[in-house]
């Protein structure tokens, strides 16, 4: 049985900011994937994922972000990640994800980097 996922949603102008809370692992990554897909299908093309409230993410969650980034790119949009704690930043670096999905310091920088 899948675990739930809590994701806070806000808009700053045309930028959608998603803040997942707690953990994204293989038990709830499919729900996170569905949510991002729904928002992209709704026409969101400037998306920021704010990691402030995320304590843990596994490769299942990273895979969701890669799928989302590819999908948004194909719609001429952009996915930006921000506010990662060091242990999460490390696995994005090891995996080389930070070279294909921009990771910035905080939400302000993320919105600046994702102009509508």
């Amino acid at each position: 049985m899948a675990n739930n996922i809590e994701v806070l949603e806000e808009h700053e102008g045309d930028v959608l900011i998603l803040t997942p809370v707690g953990r994204v692992d293989s038990s709830n990554a499919p729900l996170f994937e569905r949510m991002i897909k729904d928002r992209i299908d709704d026409g969101e093309i400037h998306i920021v994922v704010d990691f402030t409230k995320l304590s843990f993410i596994s490769s299942s969650g990273m895979r969701v972000l890669l799928i989302g980034a590819k999908s948004i790119r194909s719609n001429q949009g952009k996915l930006i990640l921000c506010s990662m704690r060091d242990s999460i930043r490390e696995i994005f670096s090891i995996s080389g994800f930070d070279t294909i999905i921009p990771v910035v310091k905080d939400r302000i920088a993320a919105i600046d980097a994702n102009p509508a």
């Binding site: 490769s59 895979r63 890669l66 799928i67 294909i100």
Partner: peptide
């Protein structure tokens, strides 16, 4: 690989 060419998956054991 660049974003469009990056395969999805295969990362877990590498980490």
């Amino acid at each position: 690989s660049e974003l469009d060419a990056r395969p999805i998956g295969g990362l877990g054991i590498h980490l």
